[in-house]
Amino acid sequence: MRRTAHWLAWWVALVVLWQLFVSTFAAPEVLAGLLAAAVSATAAEAVRGQNLVHFHPRARWFVQAYRLPGNVVRDCLVLGRVLWRRVVRREPIEGDFIALAFSPGGDDPQAAARRALYVAAISLTPNTFVVGIDRDNDVMLIHQLVPTDPTDARELLFPP
């Protein structure tokens, strides 16, 4: 019963998304949308049914996302300068890998959500993306085009 409810939720949401994109109620388009949504909902439910991972993020984490637009704009300017140096001045530019202290937490849903949001938020900023998290050694490996020498992973999202 619960799986059916999940499948239906996915299907309805995907049909709505399809309709928003195609903007027509022509029969062939609607039929194609119903079928495509059914296939996608089945795939989504098959993955969810395996119970691979659960996410329970805290609402206050999303409140802190107000810093992200500023970080993105700042990093876009950094990339602009890099492009200038590379194209106009013909300077060789090479990014670098940096290992940062990061407390990854355990296997609980809250820790999994925290890791996922850290990876997504850091990788959203143009100058930095996350390559991986070493949970055995409490290390996050990032790649930066212009290294900024952060002391830990948190500093990337909340610069001093």
Binding site: V72, V73, D75, C76, L79, G80, V82, L83, R86, V87, P92, I93, E94, G95, S123, L124, T125, P126, N127, F129, H143, L145
Partner: peptide
Amino acid sequence: LACLGVMVMTSAYDRLHFTAPATTI
């Protein structure tokens, strides 16, 4: 500019950075 960045950078990791402005700003 993002396309130009992908073209002129030398390694795959460096090129990946230029996909971000193309999907945000």
